[in-house]
Write a protein that binds this DNA or RNA. Structure first.
Length: 456
RNA sequence: GGAGAGAUGACCGAGAGGCCGAAGGUGCUCGCCUGCUAAGUGAGUGAAUGGUUAACGCUGUUCCGAGGGUUCGAAUCCCUCUCUCUCCGCCA
């Protein structure tokens, strides 16, 4: 138990991975990852050998160079014999001050060569380290796939309907607020065009969510860039492994954000934060762009799986000691949106086999969709512990301690806006094809109580 | 897009081949002092990584935007790149 928790926080410390290879390898298996780490030991040995050698040479260079400076100042020219103190540092053939220069040139060349070897070993290690997923927290249920995710709690009830509930794409197209055909004409499959009250409802939801999180949950609103560079993508763990899921802008190092998690977590990349400022809580609206590679034929209808969708995100930077409390709070902050909208949902805890690459622990919130007769993910809330903080180098200074430490990063959707809209369409649909607007949204809809058609 | 200026520690800001891991200040830590607060005052205080130690610690190496080069030796000289600022052009 202890060791597992310990592991979670220290993951991707090279020293730890190197010294506990068997434990890490075992944990990978539990995650259903077949990554082979056996080469790591040799790479690290190479690295340390080169390091020891090159540092010894650099030490000699530093000391001799320093002495040369002093000798010159003292007025000794090249023909003078070298002082005793330097004799041990250089070869026996070096007798005069003038010989030192030549000897040091040779040492410098050796250093250059060893530095090259060192870099090579380091790169091999990095390449391997960057594709090792985070290790699950001890509380993560063990299982192979999504079907093994236990339900943590449910809230509300399925709405009673005395008619056959329709799927949102039928409702939306009938009302004229969702237009997939024209979106396909403009762009392609997996895009949506919203009309009139549909567009308005999407905008209302964004504002409603941001207002709750900023006014009641204590998050600071940020509006980040919707494109990020490769370094940021690596920091949060999308790269190097998941390049195929991203849209990259041709001829640049820029990517469309797949989630606000990337720009917002990277706000503090390379920074040392003050402990008194933690936890730092941000909320951000962004569109999200996903290539959805490998999902051909899945969820092809409606708003479920789009290349572009809107999301309000919650991001936290926490002290390690409190990160799991913060995760529970963040989860409740996301749930609160569904509660206010009176949408029935369940919370599941992702099992080891279903956990994402960067996460130590993840809860999914799944909303009930009567039109399809199933629960559907509408939010995913995770604690990444040190995983992203190491990659993005986000540290803080624990009070009273000399060393800096990595923060824990967390994030969760609060919520996916398109999926919230479709959940409203399906849960609030009426027999006549209209859709009642949840009360809390009416102030955001100019008082409108019911969607009856695009023009109204 | 054109022209110029710049990038130094948590932050501001000196430094212009060796005496620089880097003055001074802010912040922070530990004291002193004033009844509280503010002010004052003394000392300390960069990061990463390797070795060693039971530990306090001791010690090597690296880091002055990034990468190359010159040199026995680079924050400092040269080249390339990135970013920031100012002016001009264009533009929501």
């Amino acid at each position: 138990m202890y060791i597992v928790e310990f592991m979670g926080t220290i993951m991707h410390d090279l020293k730890f991975v190197r010294d506990h290879l068997d434990i890490v390898q075992e944990s990978l298996k539990r995650r259903r990852s077949d990554l082979d780490l056996s080469a790591l030991t040799q790479f690290d040995q190479d690295r340390r050998d080169a390091l020891a050698k090159v540092e010894a040479l650099k030490n000699i260079r530093n000391r001799v160079s320093d002495a040369v400076g002093r000798l010159k100042k003292a007025g000794l020219d090249d023909n003078n014999p070298i002082p005793e103190e330097l004799a041990d540092l250089v070869g026996p053939e070096v007798k005069q001050v003038g010989d030192l220069r030549q000897e040091m040139r040779r040492v410098s060349d050796d250093i250059k060569e060893l530095d090259g070897l060192l870099l090579e070993a380091q790169e091999k290690i990095n390449t391997l380290m960057m594709v090792i997923p985070n290790l699950p927290h001890s509380s993560v249920p063990i299982g192979a796939e999504a079907a093994d995710n236990p339900v943590v709690r449910t809230w509300g009830e399925k709405p009673q309907m005395d008619f056959d509930p329709k799927a949102h794409w039928d409702i939306g197209e009938h009302l004229g607020i969702l237009d997939f055909e024209r979106a396909a004409k403009i762009t392609g499959a997996r895009f949506a065009l919203y009309w009139g009250q549909g567009a308005r409802l999407e905008r209302a939801l964004i504002n409603f969510m941001l207002d709750i999180h900023t006014r009641e949950h204590g998050y600071l609103e940020v509006l980040p860039p919707f494109m990020v560079n490769g370094v940021s993508m690596t920091g949060t763990g999308q790269l190097p492994k998941f390049a195929a899921d991203l849209f990259k802008l041709e001829g640049t190092d820029y990517y469309l954000v797949p989630t606000a998690e990337v720009p917002v977590t990277n706000i503090h990349a390379q920074e040392i934060l003050e402990e008194k400022d933690l936890p730092i809580c941000y909320t951000a609206y962004t569109p999200c762009f996903r290539a959805e590679a490998g999902s051909y034929g899945k969820d092809t209808r409606g708003l479920i799986r789009q290349h572009q969708f809107n999301k309000v995100e919650l991001v936290k930077f926490s002290r390690p000691e409190t990160s799991y409390e913060e995760l529970e709070k963040l989860l409740l902050n996301a749930e609160e949106i569904l509660r206010r909208l009176n949408l029935h949902y369940q919370v599941v805890s992702l099992c080891t086999g279903d956990l994402g690459f960067s996460a130590s622990k993840t809860y999914d919130i799944e909303v009930w969709l009567p039109g399809q007769g199933l629960y559907r993910e509408i939010s995913s809330c995770s604690n990444f512990e040190e995983f992203q903080a190491r990659r993005a180098n986000i540290r803080y200074r624990p009070t009273g301690q000399k060393k800096t430490a990595y923060v824990h990063t967390l994030n969760g959707s609060g919520l996916a806006v398109g999926r919230t809209l479709l959940a409203i369409l399906e849960n609030y649909q009426q027999n006549d094809g209209s859709v009642i607007i949840p009360e809390v949204l009416r102030p955001y809809m100019n008082g409108l109580e019911k969607i009856t058609g695009v023009r109204v």
